[in-house]
Design a protein around this nucleic acid. Sequence first.
DNA 1: GACAGCAATGCTTTATGGTT
DNA 2: AACCATAAAGCATTGCTGTC
Length: 645
Amino acid sequence: METEQDTLPKPNDQPVLPRSYQTEMVAQAIDENLIVCLPTGSGKTYISVMLIKELLGSTNSKLCHGGKRTIFLVKQVTLVHQQGDYISMHLGKEISVGKYYGDMGVDLWNKSEWDKELETHQILVMTAQIFVNILDHAYFFNLLIFDECHHATGADPYASVMNKHYNNISGNMPRILGLTASITSRKIKANKLEKEMKQLESTLKSRVESGSSREESRRYGTSALVKHISCVPYESNCNDSIKMAFEILDQISLEIAEHYSESRSERDEQEYQLSELMLFTDYQNTNMFNYNEQSARYMQICQSQSITVPKLKRHIDNIKHMGNDLGLMGLYLASLHLKNCLKIDLNNQLNFNKLSSQQLIMNVHNKIELMTDSILNTLVETNSTNYRLLYSEKVCSLLEQIVEQYALTLSLETYDYSSSPMKCIVFVERICTAIILSELFENVCQKRYPEYNSIKSKYVAGTKSFGIKDVMSAKHQRQTINEFRTGKINCLIATAVVEEGLDIPQCNLVFRFNKPNNFCSYMQSKGRARAKKNASFIILMSSDDDKALAEYREYEEIETMLQNEFYFRSLSFDDDIEDAKELQPYVTEKGVIIDAVRAVRLIYEYCAILGHGQIFPPRVLFHGSGPYTCILSMPANCPVRNDIM
DNA sequence: GACAGCAATGCTTTATGGTT
DNA sequence: AACCATAAAGCATTGCTGTC
């Protein structure tokens, strides 16, 4: 995620110099609880490292002498390692960082074991759930960092940490730092952003600070070129025989639904009978036999329904979806999957099911087999050169774009990249899309069209899924991503797993094949596109889908709002305004009014331009409470050398 | 007073994750 | 591997409101 490109410790690691907005953020975080809102890739984790360093003082003494500890909370287990290593690397050897997650059996630990851990480690990285568990032991913490803090909503462990334990405590409240790129994970309208932001602020008892209105952080954030490509939906392109295949699928779907509702009414009846029977059962003698029999029958029906039939329906829906999204080839590959699946089912699980379900499955299997082997197969064979029929326009333009970009990258490439010059990610919504699309690529690239041969693709998806079964263990995931990092693969097809958590290298080409589910998702996937030069973020959408277009526009609006929001907010809503009002705004000869808040901002911007923030941050010191004086020390490379009063 | 259209609500499906 | 939880989209239902 937003660790820098060199997350893996390298031998020639150069010391990272803080950028001015980072220093500024840290300076503010020392004084108040803060939610840092910066785009992916701008070094949020480094800000937390700096803050940990600043507040290290209170973690030095032993627990019994009033020593406190720093907690870094993350959402996922993989992030425990990733962020833990990052922090540990930047803090140096003398600071001890502990890592904790559920698999270690920490839940079984008692207080004395935790005492030991807290005594030996000053910084503890863990998943939020574990922190909730140990909070009962009443330890003291100086600093609480929430990684990806936009998750702090509803009943999330993040929120429950704040709500349950830090609601009424005023004296021993730790300093809180939230890190996020997107404020909210919900899908929201631009005009609701304000509300969400307030909500998050009140949950974390912090203030949102997004330094991204300044030039410098923007430079380090994502600067990908955004491109929208609208494609004609596949249905309008296909011919009658393909439509027929879809009709068969519809029919099967209908049959399943019928069967389902039929047996559901049967189940309802059984349930009714069962409940009737229960009223008259004395649970001791004669009626017991009836009751047992009835309930056994009921269970059987429940089981046969709940396991196979809805699954089958989902499968069919998936296939239809594939067909519409990817084209004939996708339809063919997907139904091949189902055919094999059903064959296995027929061999294994048959005895579990009721007779009518058996027949249904058999029936569906036959139809699918017929469709796959005779209709689709011949269609694919006879149209083997007809691009437009085999693949949907979305797939076509995806391929075209990749090839185009590949050529471009090759022509621009300098010598420093020994591995693959191109790294490309395609984000899809469903796991099955990822599977089928990668098969499709393989098909296209290796067999039919050698000009696409340079594309080597694999997919990454979550471990748990329904529908098309294809085990994707965490180990397998890591392995695939490693291959991607080293350049063995140059095109990764991924679901939302990759958006958060997994450590993905920078890419110069990122696609949204399906639309993102929410704003957070949009930001994360966009944040993946940040190569040194010529990174593109390409959105594919269907041309008849006005809603999707509106959604993207909405996201872009929110994005710019996030960059500017902070400035407007501090003028109109924050309690800063009271302080600011006390100071007379400065008016230039031309009549431009600069008030206190704006002035501070201007100074920081000026400094950013001056030294790219790597020399010294400006320091502002306030004295007194009523009419106070302010000492401003400018950076060393500023022409104004003396302190300004 | 009847009917159409829009907003709020609830249910299901599709993802993800963590823990046992 | 199975279970739980969350979030959001899509769809259907309900209820309100405005118009004829």
